[in-house]
Structure formats: C-alpha cells, structure tokens
Amino acid sequence: MSAFRLLIARDLRLAMRQGGDAAMVVAFFILTVVLFPFGVGPEPELLQRIAAGIIWVTALLAALLSLEKLFQTDYEDGSLEALSLLPLPLEFQVLAKCVAHWLVTGLPLTLVAPLLALLLHLDPAGYGALMLGMALGTPILSLLGAVGAALTLGARRGGVLLSLLVLPLYIPVLIFGVAAIEASIGGFGARPHLLILTALLVLASGLVPFAAAAALRQALE
C-alpha cells in the first residue's frame, strides 16, 4: 500500500477505535438543526424559507468541532515529528489527513443533510443542489480547517482561535452552497454555483497542503 493511503487508513482506524468524533459531529449537526423549529416556531412556510441557510450554517459549525484534533494528538505524542521525517512530503501527508478527516466528518454530514432538510420542509427541488453542494463544500471545510489547525498548533485556547481564524474563510462556501439550493428552487439551475464550489475545491486542494505544511514545520522547529 502506498504511504499516502497508509496514512489515510491509519487516521480512519484511529477514528474508529477512538470513536466519538464522527458521531459527535453528526449528533451536533442534528441537535442544532432540531433546535431551530423550537426557536423560530414550527410554521412550515418559515422553516422552508430558512432551511437551506440553517443546514449550511450548522454544517459549518459542526465541521469546526472536530478540527482542533486534526494535528493536535499527533503533535503531542511525537507522531507529527516522526511523520515530518518520512520520505513522503509533508504536503501530501496534509492532503491525506484532510481526506481522512472528510471521510469521518464531511461525508456523514452530507449523508445526514437530506434527512434534516425533510425535517425543515425544504422544497423538493432543492435536494439535488443540497447534496451536491455539501459533497463539494464539506471537503473545502476540511481543507481550510487544516490550515487553521496547523497554524494554531500548540497555542493556548487554540480551539477558540481556530474558530475565529477559520469561520471567515468558510463564508464563500456558505454563500455558494446556499445560493445553489435557492437557485434550483427558484428554477434557475444550480450549475453556476456548483461550478464555483468545484473551483474553490480545486484551488483549496492545490494551495492548502503547502500552507498547512509550512505551518506544521514552523510548529515543529
């Protein structure tokens, strides 16, 4: 097995054994979305109007939850130092860890989203755009989060700092994710918005590994 896939497999195995992380993220996602009908009232028209926004904002916050541990445990037990001395460049290792992170958090969020959309009476025309948007958008959340997680490594109260750093960067994903749903409900077609999300994903996968690896090297020095 190549070193790249081996690292993904290790992170997945750690996530399985330690449990918690994926389940926690999904549980947070569901619970928070369920809170909204209690807060704003159960009128279907109102919920239908704000469903896309609620789901996307909550997904962003849920993705944030698991980011802090992305490099933290490897940093603390010395694994990160050993990883950085492997022949596989740190940039590829960052990418591998993002893939594993997405499989553990982003993918379950994407799969749960339509159920929550049902709960909020999302217009049936929006489901396709919701699923596709989540599938394209959640990997961007993992990638951008990796930069934040690498930069805040070793900082005190890194979790809060991480949120402040990463949330503003998530805004484009939120805008185009919600716009895709609104557009397809309005009959305009979600294609342009999904294409922009795709472009953002390509851009992030190309740039993030370099930025995060540089930050990790700084932390290890």
Binding site: R10, L14, R17, Q18, D77, G78, S79, A82, L85
Partner: peptide, 14 residues
C-alpha cells in the same frame, strides 16, 4: 535517516 527522539510516537489505541 531514522530519528528517535524523546517521544515514542505511539497511539494508545493501536
């Protein structure tokens, strides 16, 4: 190179 520092780089669950 092999570098073995002070930390053992082991995961408790593996």
């Amino acid at each position: 190179l092999h570098f073995i520092g002070h930390s053992d780089a082991l995961k408790p669950v593996l």
